[in-house]
């Protein structure tokens, strides 16, 4: 095929293009991810029984804000990574804010208790399962995020995969917070972060395999 023929051919495929197609795909993916995680959470773990009472506690909302802020920063980053040649800008910095704030709060909390209470504060009562539960709840958003990226053109596939994994982890944590009985920042600062790191690492590994275009 001659290049001029190809150009003529491409120009016939002239339907108008939706410029926010990427954002729409990620919005759909996030909604599907949250819904999927919600169903999984109810089926596997159930809401925490004292949910209504806990809603009065600031830490309950703190968990949600932390996860939601990370998800929002992840989305801001992904919509840029999905486009060839688009600089990442400040999106990377925003991603660092939620964990830094959480870690600072955790250090403050550890500082205030006697040394003997620090380890129990970090381990809580569910540290063995929490990261894996978050990773399990992130599966729907993980699949949806990769689907959204398949409709885009990321040029750094490992990074884009990691971004989709992080978004999935944050959404998984967001939903898991409705079950999770832990309320101490040192616990969240370690195990929630580990839980989100699992899909992030998986995304970095799978990105180059699944996202080529």
């Amino acid at each position: 095929m001659k290049t001029d023929e190809l150009i003529h051919l491409l120009a016939t495929d002239d339907r108008p293009v939706q410029r926010t197609a990427i954002e729409q795909r990620f919005a759909v993916a996030s909604a599907a991810g949250i819904a999927g995680a919600g169903v999984l959470m109810l089926a596997l773990f159930g809401l925490r029984p004292d949910l209504l009472a806990t809603m009065a506690l600031p830490m309950f909302w703190g968990k949600l804000v932390f996860a939601a802020a990370l998800a929002a920063a992840g989305l801001a980053l992904l919509r840029r990574m999905a486009r060839p040649g688009m600089p990442l800008g400040h999106a990377v910095l925003w991603l660092a804010v939620p964990p830094l704030v959480l870690w600072a709060m955790a250090l403050g909390a550890l500082w205030q208790v006697p040394a003997a209470e620090r380890v129990p504060l970090i381990l809580g009562s569910t540290w063995r399962t929490c990261p894996f539960n978050i990773a399990a709840l992130s599966v729907p958003a993980f699949v949806a995020g990769f689907w959204a990226l398949k409709g885009a053109a990321p040029t750094r596939l490992a990074w884009a995969g990691a971004g989709a994994g992080l978004l999935a982890g944050a959404l998984g944590a967001l939903v898991y917070a409705l079950h999770c009985p832990e309320m101490a920042t040192p616990f969240l600062a370690v195990w929630y972060v580990v839980g989100m790191a699992i899909p992030t690492a998986l995304g970095a590994i799978l990105g180059p395999r699944l996202l080529r275009w």
Binding site: A21, A82, R83, P84, A153, W213
Partner: peptide
């Protein structure tokens, strides 16, 4: 062509 929806003005 196939990725032209990824262009932002």
């Amino acid at each position: 062509h196939n990725q032209r929806h990824t262009y932002r003005p």
